[in-house]
Every structure is written in structure tokens, then in C-alpha cells.
Write a protein that binds this DNA or RNA. Structure first.
Length: 413
DNA sequence: TCTGGGGTCCTAGGACCC
DNA sequence: TCTGGGGTCCTAGGACCC
């Protein structure tokens, strides 16, 4: 652990907390017989792609995005664990709540990552190093899990620091040293710069972070707008992005699902669309939002068939959304085999705005029923009550994944 | 045996309006 | 005949994140 910690306080202290192999670590914690063994988490019991794996499995070369079959060739004793999203959310919530005791200036970045701005905690809690150690202790106490912590003067450098020592690391980069530490690194080492951006920067001779200062900020700014300005500063250890404390309402709500191989059956396709419609509708209601524009897509061998369907009024009702899907399928699908379906609500309004228009009595009735269903589902789990068409499909897994391989393109919106 | 599931932000181009 | 602005909304798609 390389650490620098000066006695004088830093002008800005940003911490990134990153849980190590989060889903796999939870499974090992809850199933003690799996500890110190290679574990791979998949999307339900039928899942064949690895969502994440334990360090023991990674030792054999098992990676996120890999097929289970391929992984077993590398590691025959690999243990498959079916994902349990609710459990991960539960532990994540407990961790985030404990971090909130350190500072209210916390940004929950994903299910297993959080940024903390502890600039103003230094006189109360101690040096950046001390606060970093405190964070690790808190996370361990509340979850029994190890995390990696990066501490620096901005979000990007803190995130870079956190990945230097895994698992269970604590890495400090003093803000005064950020620029020098990042300078020899490839720009793609930074979160927010990937191949596309790197390709653009390479045209101007920028390959490593230290090259960035040789071009004017106007070059990335002209190409990428505000993001371009941020990238220019990021590479020099001066990421200006603030910790976003407020949880913003979602701008889109969507669900998609890969189909069984070579699905050509209309009934099956409709079942999937209905399932996606109900999931979207349920989440709209949970957020007290309604949508009047829906992306509906269907991926075939030849590419995407897609549309943006307008509902005649803003809705959070699964049947209404499914009706749009049904129309789309009958008008556009010609019988090709289907790989994937997608339904996304695009144009979201809060209910207060839309209730003015919901004076139709059948709409109001349905809305009451939906609220009742929501209550039951929240208490006993998703889809306890659901449309009859879905009954024999209710075991469809749904999972949130912390990371995935960035190949194969997915079309949304 | 090529297939997992959610998002955000940004740009360019066209339609439309005054 | 030619030249002509400025604004908004919508759509399609690229790039990135976990």
C-alpha cells in the first residue's frame, strides 16, 4: 500500500469505495462452504454467462462476460451461484447507510460503489488516511465484506487510486501529486475515457494523461462538449465534477431480455413483450411516473426492428404498454427468429402533471387495481399476481449486473 | 452454442415555426 | 432572382458507465 499523508489538511478530499467482487463476495459470505473457493455468479440457475466471479475463480482466468462452459474448462471445480439481486440490494443499502454516517456528502454511484466528499470532515475525523481506514472498518463491520478505497482530491483520481490495490486496498494520492501520478498512464485508464474517445485524442498525439496538456481544451470541448472539457481536466488530476448528493428521478425506464435461441413463435414473443411491459409499468408506478412515448424493439438476425410508439395519454399501465407492443409486432415482424426484446418508457412525467387527464373512469379503476397489485408484489416479491399469460414464465430471472463485457452492441432508445 | 441487463449524456440533422 | 436568421422539438445514433 503506497500512501502519502501530509499533516496539513487537503483542500479537497474525495473517497471512492469499491466493493471487491461484490456479488460473489456476498455469495461466499452467505454460503460459508464456498469461502476460498472459485465461485461464479450467473443470471439465475439457467444463466450461462458469468456476471462476476470470486478472486479464486479469477486466478484461473475466469472473467465477467465469459460463458460458463468456457469458464469450466479453465476451472473444472467452479461453483455456480444463482444471482440474488434482492440480497445484494439489501447489503448494499446497509453499506451505504453506514457510509452516510461519515458524511452526508455521498453519491451512490452503483450497487457496489460510492463517492464521498470528506473535505469538511478532516477536523472532526482526522487525516485523509484516517478517514479512509475508518471507511474500510465501517464497511467490514456492517457487511463482513472487504472493499477497496481510493482517496484523492477529485473523483477521477480517487477512482484510479482505488483500483491500484485490490482486493482490500487503501490507496492515497495527494492532490498535489495527482497530475504527476496520472501523467505516464494511458488515458483509457481513466473512468470516462474508452476506445472511442482515445481514438479521437490519438489524432492529436494524446495517448497518455501527460500528453493532454499539450493540446488546448478547445479541441476535446469542440468534439465532446462539457464532457470534453471535463476529460481535459481529468487527465491532469483536476476533475471538477462534484459529488452528486441528490438522487435524480430516472429519465428512462426500460427492460429487455434475450430470448431462447431461434425463437420464431409469435406467442412466445408476445409473452416476453408482456413481461417487459409489466416490469416497466411496475417501475413507473414505483417512481410515480407515467410515460407517453415508448421505445419498442426486437432484435432479429438481420438487426433491429424498432419503433417509438406514442400512447394517446401518459400511462403507467402494463396492458396499455403491451397493446403498443402487440401492434408493433403484428405490423413489423415477418417471422424471423428473434434474439432479444426491449421496452423502454422514454418521455416520463410525474403523476401530478398527468392525473389531470386521467378522468376516464376505466383508467381510474385500473389505476386502483395496479396500486393494490403493487402492494402485494412489494410485500411478497415481484409477480405474485400477474397476467395469466405470464403464469408459467414467472421464474424469469432479472438481475442487476455490476459490470459486463463491452462487446456486442445493444440498442436502446 | 457469440448473447446479459440496466442506465446517462451528447451531437447532428431535419422539421417546423416565426 | 437571390439571400436570408433564430429558435425549438424530435429522432437516430455514438460513447461511456456499472
Amino acid at each position: 500500500m503506497a500512501m502519502t499523508d501530509s499533516p496539513s489538511s487537503w483542500s479537497r478530499v474525495i473517497i471512492l469505495v469499491d466493493m471487491n467482487c461484490f456479488f460473489a463476495a456476498v455469495e461466499q459470505k452467505d454460503n460459508p462452504q464456498w469461502r476460498n473457493k472459485p465461485v461464479a455468479v450467473t443470471n439465475g440457475v439457467q444463466g450461462t454467462t458469468i456476471i462476476t466471479s470470486s478472486y479464486e475463480a479469477r486466478y484461473y482466468g475466469v472473467k465477467t462476460g465469459m460463458h460458463l462452459r468456457e469458464a469450466r474448462q479453465l476451472c473444472p471445480e467452479l461453483i455456480q451461484a444463482a444471482s440474488r439481486p434482492h440480497r445484494y440490494v439489501e447489503i448494499s443499502t446497509a453499506i451505504m447507510a453506514s457510509l452516510e454516517k461519515v458524511t452526508p456528502d455521498i453519491e451512490v454511484y452503483s450497487v457496489d460503489e460510492a463517492f464521498l466528499d470528506v473535505t469538511h470532515c478532516q477536523s472532526l475525523l482526522g487525516s485523509p488516511l484516517t478517514i479512509g481506514q475508518l471507511v474500510k472498518t465501517l464497511v467490514m463491520d456492517v457487511s463482513g465484506l472487504a472493499c477497496s478505497v481510493g482517496v484523492s482530491g477529485d473523483k477521477t483520481t480517487a477512482k484510479y487510486a482505488a483500483k491500484l490495490h485490490k482486493p482490500d486496498g487503501l490507496t492515497l494520492i495527494h492532490p498535489d501529486e495527482s497530475e504527476a501520478v496520472l501523467a505516464p498512464q494511458l488515458v483509457t485508464e481513466l473512468s470516462g475515457i474508452n476506445k472511442g474517445t482515445a481514438r479521437f485524442l490519438a489524432q492529436y498525439g494524446v495517448f497518455r494523461c501527460g500528453d493532454m496538456k499539450n493540446i488546448p481544451i478547445s479541441i476535446p470541448a469542440k468534439r465532446f462538449g462539457n464532457l470534453g472539457r471535463r476529460i481535459w481536466l481529468m487527465a491532469q488530476g483536476k476533475d471538477p465534477a462534484p459529488i452528486e448528493t441528490n438522487v435524480k428521478p430516472p429519465k428512462t425506464i426500460g427492460h429487455g431480455k434475450v430470448m431462447p435461441p431461434k425463437t420464431c413463435d409469435l406467442a412466445t414473443i408476445l409473452i416476453y413483450f408482456q413481461h417487459m411491459s409489466e416490469k416497466v409499468a411496475t417501475r413507473l408506478r414505483r417512481h410515480q411516473l407515467k410515460g407517453d412515448l415508448f421505445y419498442i424493439g426486437l432484435k432479429t438476425k438481420d438487426g433491429w426492428l424498432q419503433t417509438r410508439a406514442k400512447a394517446s395519454f401518459a400511462t403507467d399501465d402494463g396492458k396499455t404498454i403491451f397493446y403498443l407492443c402487440h401492434q408493433f409486432v403484428t405490423q413489423n415482424w415477418l417471422g424471423q427468429s428473434v434474439w432479444q426484446v426491449q421496452v423502454t418508457a422514454l418521455n416520463l412525467h410525474s403523476e401530478q402533471q398527468t392525473d389531470l387527464f386521467a378522468d376516464d373512469s376505466s383508467v381510474a379503476q385500473r389505476s386502483q387495481l395496479n396500486n393494490a397489485i403493487d402492494e402485494i408484489n412489494q410485500r411478497y416479491g415481484e409477480f405474485t399476481i400477474l397476467p395469466s399469460r405470464l403464469l408459467d414464465r414467472s421464474e424469469m430471472p432479472n438481475v442487476i449486473a455490476p459490470s459486463w463485457k463491452p462487446f456486442g452492441h445493444r440498442k436502446t432508445i
